[in-house]
Amino acid sequence: MKITGSPSGAISTVTPGAGAAPAPVQADAAGAAQSTALQSAVLQPAAEALAALPDFDAARVAELRDALARGELPFDAGRLAGLIQKFHAGR
């Protein structure tokens, strides 16, 4: 769906299935710059903390894999299949 805006900021045309990129939103340049700077200052520590995290905990994955192999961690294939089905049914 492509939504195009008029110079006043009002939506003038909605064309389902048209165009690849949405039209840019027009905003007051000073207000947008101030808002971006505020968001950047507020979100920067969270973004840095998130970037510092590993994609996954490889040590924990190895620990769980070993526990499964030793039979110390119960595994219910039917329950796993049900959870996968439930997860994908909502999409």
Score class of each variant (00 low, 15 high):
Phe56Trp: 13
Gln34Arg: 15
Ala23Pro: 05
Gly31His: 10
Gln44Asp: 15
Ala23Val: 00
Ala58Cys: 06
Ala32Tyr: 12
Ala47Asn: 08
Asp57Ile: 01
Thr36Lys: 14
Thr15Lys: 07
Pro45His: 06
Gln44Ala: 15
Gly31Glu: 07
Leu53Val: 02
Ala62Met: 05
Gly17Pro: 04
Ala46Asn: 11
Val25Arg: 14
Leu50Val: 05
Ala18Pro: 02
Arg60Leu: 10
Ala23Tyr: 01
Leu50Ala: 15
Ala46His: 12
Leu38Met: 11
Pro45Glu: 01
Thr36Ser: 07
Ala29Asn: 10
Ala47Lys: 15
Glu48Ser: 09
Leu50Cys: 09
Leu53Cys: 12
Gln26Thr: 13
Val61Thr: 04
Ala46Cys: 12
Ser35Pro: 05
Ala49Met: 04
Ala32Met: 13
Ala47Val: 08
Pro16Arg: 02
Ala29Asp: 12
Ala47Glu: 06
Arg60Val: 01
Pro45Ser: 02
Ser40Ile: 02
Ala59Tyr: 03
Gly19Asp: 03
Ala58Asp: 11
Ala18Gly: 04
Asp55Pro: 10
Ala49His: 03
Glu63Pro: 10
Glu48Val: 06
Ala20Thr: 03
Ala59Asn: 11
Gly17Tyr: 01
Ala47Asp: 03
Ala23Arg: 00
Ala58Gln: 12
Leu38Phe: 11
Ala37Val: 03
Leu50Met: 12
Leu38Lys: 07
Ala41Glu: 05
Arg60His: 07
Ser40Pro: 08
Ala20Met: 03
Asp55His: 15
Glu63Ile: 00
Leu38Ser: 08
Ala33Ile: 01
Gln39Arg: 13
Val25Glu: 04
Ala18Thr: 01
Thr36Arg: 14
Glu48Gln: 10
Ala58Arg: 14
Pro16Thr: 00
Gly31Phe: 08
